[in-house]
Amino acid sequence: MRFIYTKAFAFFSVCVAIVAIVTFLEAKGYGGPIQAVFINAPRPVAAAVSSLARPVRNFFSTVYNLKKITDQNVQLTSQVYQLQQQLADFNQATRENQDLKQELGFVAGAKNQFTPCTALAQNPLGLTDTLIINCGQDNGVTEGQGVITQGYLVGKIIYAGKTSSTVLLITSSQFSSDALVSSTGDSGVVEGSFGSGIILDQLSQSAVVNKGDLVVTAGINPQIPKNLLIGQVGSVLSAPGDLFKKATLVSPIDFSNLQFVFVAQ
């Protein structure tokens, strides 16, 4: 008997029809409940396995990185002293700034509002550099909005369903956003780069960029607020003949382990 007349082929056709229905529901924005079931069903097992695996991994990781941690500790201690001094200067400048604003009758800009969200799925196979969060249109989330965690930009919303949304992480090669070097105000474009993290591109050749400079959002895109931290300049990549300067950025965020994020509104 030919395969297309068998019960197996009929079953296969039913499976394909189910896929078509689920895809249609997802495209129309009604896929939230199905997505929630498939994302939440393995969560108890994942949490149990993770709670066993994490301490073991942390132990071996700590042993492996012991020398690095000691060196880092010395560096960070000296950095703390420097930052304390800077903080004192900053407080002084803030007070002066407030006094001057009062004198000039300066109108304060509206503060950003952030919606707290929880990561539902963290892309276990590392296929798309995306994150699914539990906030959607019902929470005022729309496509294009910036997403932050610990004060750093981590991505932007690329799909907003009714109860959940997809965040494109800053490390994705499909991500791009305006940015500027905090110390000099030179503007460029931040892009993700597969395998090598984050790149600050399209800086003019006359721009002054040094290792350790902070890079923040420029605020040209109204959906991503100005002055959100993106990262620190790691190394400058530029040849004399290049049209633009390029630099790698280092972010302290562990993009593979995002638990809570905030959507800028």
């Binding site: 393995p42 969560r43 097992v45 994942a46 993770s50 991994r57 799925a121 963290q122």
Partner: peptide
């Protein structure tokens, strides 16, 4: 669950 909880490590 094992895929999500164990293999990232």
């Amino acid at each position: 669950g094992i895929q999500t909880g164990l293999f990232p490590y």
